[in-house]
Amino acid sequence: MSRKPYVREVSKTRWFLRQPRYMRYMMREVTCLSIGAYALVLVLGIKRLSEGRAAYEGFLQALASPGGILFHLVVLAFALYHTASWFNVTPKAMPVQIGESFVSGGVIVGAHYGAWIVISLAVLLLAGAF
């Protein structure tokens, strides 16, 4: 009896196409592209702001172009996906045990969503969006 184990190759570049759960994972991971892009746009906005009124208002106008609006809609969609995917796993990373029992995951996730809504409303309110 000779041993000759057979090693199956796993695709290093397309493994995530194999299962929906891997696709969901990759979807979560690529939210980083829009978050990074948006952060870079914020840097650009601050640059324009530091260059004076004309530069800043030109920047705002550029954002109001169809391309700018499309960019922000895409970023908003990915940002929301990031928020949901981040909050939904919080009970795994930060379980809370009170006495003997663990606080149910739904409560921890719910608390995050609740805080998120409060913070978002506060930001919008303080920013004078209403």
Partner: peptide, 22 residues
């Protein structure tokens, strides 16, 4: 990288993904 698949397939409902993040 917290794919989370480990916990989804665990037949004993252990949550390894949670353990690893902790």
């Amino acid at each position: 990288s917290f794919v989370g698949a480990c916990s989804e397939v665990c037949p004993k409902h252990v949550d390894p993904a949670g353990a690893l993040q902790q």
